[in-house]
Design a binder for these strands. Structure first.
Length: 421
DNA sequence: TCTGGGGTCCTAGGACCC
DNA sequence: TCTGGGGTCCTAGGACCC
């Protein structure tokens, strides 16, 4: 038995917690670079805003309705997320943190001694007490059904934000009310194809023969269908599996046209990627760089390219990773384009112990590099990032992303603490 | 003018082996 | 003229998630 707990309009709600004057008012949070609308308070949703749509298309509408906009403040959201997850961890035996604002809880044992819906309300109240954030709780036999139950809890306010869907009749009734694209794992492409096959509601999908699903789709959708029928195919993953790749990429605040600017950006992303890699206690052997112009610009030719290198020995040294990333950049860089975005990717990971030296490798790992990297990370962890950085990252960083409506980092910086007068 | 960032899994097809 | 069968590994691309 699973419960899916997720925070209502998470990013927007975090902003409102520290700005009580905004309660009941339309609030929106924008993606990096203030590019897209990625979260809306309930009042903003009522205006018919589609999350994921570009901000500039809504600018007039927002102005007319006095929508308060914020740039993404991930430092704040990550810290608020920790507080929510800690609360949940104290209440359930096993927890899977699925994303920054969602977690699956294992309710298997709890079912024996508690009415699940009551327990769901208790979770809600505890999270509100500790964080002033409101959550929805969906309960069912499988993760996919719990997701659906959570959907229902959000959609119908009379549920009080908690839906226990373990009853089969209730499941079927609810499934008949939802269109198929609301199912976890059914995106735009698949729902379109299903629609063409006459499979419109979630119940239609649940009642479709497995053989039909396998013929037209794949095992992923098969699992989804089985889960909708109450047959668990996905387990609770309490411990995050080891990462298989690390990506660091950003859109630029202003288009890049100069090689030197791009080199700085790639150097900065590579340094950040290396830091993440060490945070995972991994070594990587594959490093790649990509650059691209805007796919939306109609009056300039699109250029996007990527190239990667495989090192002889795995590394976690920022200097090796920066070096490799810049070498890749030099292969794909073309003058004359207005670059909109670039990034680096690390892959082919090895864990500390098993980094094999190549028999014919003549650049053996640098001595003492682990100590050096440790010092680097420790210094940078102390007060945010950027105490110590590589010269190649540049000092001016004209390419930095735009965040013109950033809120204070209320919970993670002394300088940004909320002042009550 | 202005369109995020970071992941996972699966599949098909090519290269290569005996 | 005629060109097998079975397997592995890797990669690129598609689809999805938040």
């Amino acid at each position: 038995m699973f419960a899916l707990v997720d925070v209502n309009s998470f990013y927007a709600s975090c902003e409102i917690v520290f700005r009580p004057d905004l309660q009941g008012r339309p609030v929106a949070v924008l993606s990096n670079n203030d590019g897209c609308v990625i979260a809306c308070s309930a009042e903003t949703k009522k205006l018919g805003i589609r999350t994921g749509a570009p901000y500039f298309k809504y600018r007039d509408l927002f102005l007319r309705h006095n929508v308060v906009c914020f740039s993404s403040n991930y430092e704040l959201y990550a810290d608020m997320s920790d507080r929510v997850m800690t609360t949940l961890e104290e209440m359930v035996p096993r927890l899977e943190i699925y994303s920054i604002d969602e977690a699956f809880c294992d309710l298997t044992g709890i079912r024996n001694c508690r009415v699940l819906e009551d327990f769901g309300r208790e979770i809600k109240e505890a999270v509100y007490r500790n964080t002033h954030l409101r959550v929805g709780v969906g309960i069912a036999q499988t993760k996919t059904l719990a997701k659906l139950a959570n959907h229902a809890a959000k959609k119908w306010t009379k549920t009080g934000g908690v839906v226990d869907l373990s009853n089969i009749e209730r499941q079927r009734k609810l499934m008949s009310l939802f269109p198929v694209d609301e199912v976890w794992g059914v995106g735009r492409r698949i729902s379109k194809k299903l629609d063409a096959m006459g499979i419109k509601t979630v119940l239609d999908l649940a009642d479709t023969h497995i053989s039909v699903i396998r013929k037209h789709f794949n095992v992923v959708l098969e699992r989804t269908v089985r889960e909708l029928r109450g047959e668990p195919c996905l387990e609770l993953e309490e411990f995050a599996p080891v990462k298989q790749e690390i990506v660091c990429s950003r859109s630029f605040g202003e288009r890049i046209t100069e090689y030197e600017q791009m080199r700085q950006a790639i150097c900065a992303y590579a340094a950040r990627g290396a830091e993440k890699l060490r945070g995972e206690h991994q070594y990587c052997r594959f490093i790649s760089t990509f650059v691209k112009t805007s796919p939306f610009a109609l009056n300039e030719p699109y250029y996007g390219n990527s190239v990667g290198v495989r090192l002889l020995t795995p590394t976690q040294d920022s200097r090796d990773i920066i070096n490799a990333a810049i070498r890749c950049l030099d292969v794909i860089w073309r003058d004359g384009h207005r670059y909109q975005k670039a990034g680096i990717m690390l892959g082919d990971f090895f864990s500390q112990g098993i980094a094999q030296l190549n028999l014919f490798d003549d650049n053996a790992p640098r001595a003492g590099c682990e100590k050096l990297m440790e010092v680097l990370d420790r210094l940078n962890a102390k007060d945010g990032r950027g105490t110590l950085y590589f010269a190649g990252q540049g000092i001016q960083q004209q390419w930095q992303m735009k965040r013109e409506m950033l809120s204070p980092r209320y919970t993670t910086r002394y300088s940004d603490l909320l002042v009550v007068r």
